[in-house]
């Protein structure tokens, strides 16, 4: 199981992130989870919304460059070692983690998002270790 994440190209300019998120809000889209990668020239805004397809269309109409990526979302316990355990499972399965970030779902549970090089191998490895991966609906 995986979750669809939308990434948006954000120029490294004053107000660029503000205008992008305002545009998303004006179109009635709620951002559940978010992370930003930044370089000297540009940033990449990564978001999880309930309707990725609609979000993609809206962004495209607004002239934004975006792309949809399947990422893994796992529930994570609030105790020492939970993150390390998940990462060890992925490492043992030779899965490469490109990036990861965390957020809280409305049910109060914490989730981790993992962008990996092979979702199928990663999901199977996590399932084998008894770690559940969520689908889009689980997060809303």
């Amino acid at each position: 199981m995986s979750v669809k994440q939308i990434s948006v190209f954000i120029e490294n300019k004053k107000g660029a992130l503000a205008s992008c998120t305002r545009y998303i809000a004006d179109n009635g889209i709620n951002i559940r989870a978010l992370s930003i990668a930044d370089t000297q020239d540009f940033g990449i805004l990564r978001i999880i919304c309930d309707d990725p397809k609609q979000t993609e269309t809206v962004l495209k109409n607004g002239g934004f460059i975006s792309t949809v990526t399947d990422v893994l979302a796992t529930e994570i316990e609030d105790k020492p070692g939970s993150m390390a355990t998940i990462l060890e499972v992925l490492a043992d399965a030779h899965v490469i983690v490109e990036y990861t970030y965390a957020f809280l779902a409305p049910d109060g549970h914490a989730y981790m998002i993992f962008r990996v090089d092979d979702n199928a191998i990663a999901s199977a490895a996590l399932a084998g270790a008894g770690i559940k991966t969520a689908n889009q609906e689980d997060l809303f």
């Binding site: 994440q5 990434s7 190209f9 990449i44 990564r46 975006s66 792309t67 990526t69 490109e98 962008r115």
Partner: peptide, 17 residues
């Protein structure tokens, strides 16, 4: 950047540059 050249990872875009 053209839409089809965009990627969600910094690494890919840095390689392109």
């Amino acid at each position: 950047l053209a839409p089809e050249q965009f990627s969600d990872t910094v690494k890919d875009l840095a390689i392109k540059e």
